[in-house]
Amino acid sequence: MNEEELISYMTGKTFIKVFTKNESELLIEYYSNFSEYNEHNPESNVSESDYNDFFTKVTIQKIMISNSAFALRFLPSTKSVSISLKFTDTLYSVELNEEKLSEFLSFSLSSLYTKELWFEKFSNVYIYDKKNRELLFNQFVKVEQQTA
């Protein structure tokens, strides 16, 4: 899978500001607010209300966990993924590598060599199941309150 294809599968792809891959590291940064998004996308039909309604607690959890794990699994040579997302006055960040995630899951992401296996063994279990999604989120995602 190439980078463009990977992005097409990502939750919140519309709001990705930076997507940089160098050697084995991937950095993804989301726009920090609607004004910043709108400034870079003046032709967009997304309203401020749409933007704010999109970033629910569940969506943020899915962005941080699913997108990082998906990139580790399906983007060749990626060994670590960093994602940052600021919404309102909270900064969410994750720095995840395949070794740490595989150790936590007790299986290697590389064993999920088809999209069907990915959904069966990872997405359905760790993204769509609230308890397991929150477990992964709490284990790997740093949440910081920001002051103005």
Rank of each mutant, 00 (worst) to 15 (best):
M1C: 11
E3S: 15
E4C: 05
L6Q: 09
L6D: 05
I7L: 11
I7D: 08
M10D: 07
T11M: 06
T11F: 08
T11H: 09
G12W: 01
G12R: 01
K13P: 00
K13S: 15
T14D: 15
T14I: 10
T14Q: 12
I16Q: 13
V18A: 10
V18S: 14
F19A: 12
F19I: 10
F19T: 10
N22R: 09
S24I: 06
E25A: 15
L26Y: 07
L27E: 12
I28W: 01
E29S: 15
E29V: 15
E29D: 12
E29Q: 15
E29G: 12
E29C: 09
Y31L: 11
N33I: 07
F34V: 04
S35K: 14
E36A: 14
Y37L: 09
Y37R: 12
N38K: 15
N41I: 07
N41Y: 06
E43R: 09
E43W: 06
E43S: 15
N45G: 15
S47W: 04
S47P: 02
E48P: 02
S49Q: 12
D50A: 13
N52V: 02
D53M: 08
F55T: 10
T56F: 09
T56R: 05
K57E: 14
K57S: 13
T59W: 03
T59P: 00
I60M: 02
I60S: 00
I60G: 00
Q61N: 04
K62S: 10
I63M: 03
S68W: 02
A69F: 01
A71P: 00
A71S: 13
R73L: 05
R73C: 03
L75V: 13
L75W: 08
L75A: 15
S77R: 11
T78F: 03
K79T: 08
K79F: 04
S80Q: 07
V81G: 00
V81R: 00
V81D: 00
I83T: 04
I83R: 01
S84M: 07
K86V: 13
F87E: 02
L91P: 00
S93E: 14
S93A: 14
S93Y: 06
E98T: 14
E99M: 07
K100V: 10
K100H: 11
E103N: 13
F104I: 03
F104E: 14
F104T: 14
L105I: 09
L105H: 13
S106R: 05
L109F: 08
S110R: 08
L112C: 03
L112A: 05
T114G: 15
K115L: 13
L117D: 03
F119P: 00
F119N: 12
F122Q: 01
F122P: 00
F122D: 01
F122G: 00
S123H: 11
N124P: 02
Y126L: 07
Y126R: 04
Y126W: 13
Y126D: 05
Y126G: 02
I127S: 01
K131R: 12
N132E: 15
R133W: 01
E134Y: 06
E134G: 07
L135R: 11
L135W: 05
F137S: 01
F137C: 09
F137A: 04
F137W: 06
N138D: 13
N138S: 11
N138E: 09
N138Y: 05
V141T: 01
K142R: 11
E144Y: 05
Q145D: 07
A148C: 03
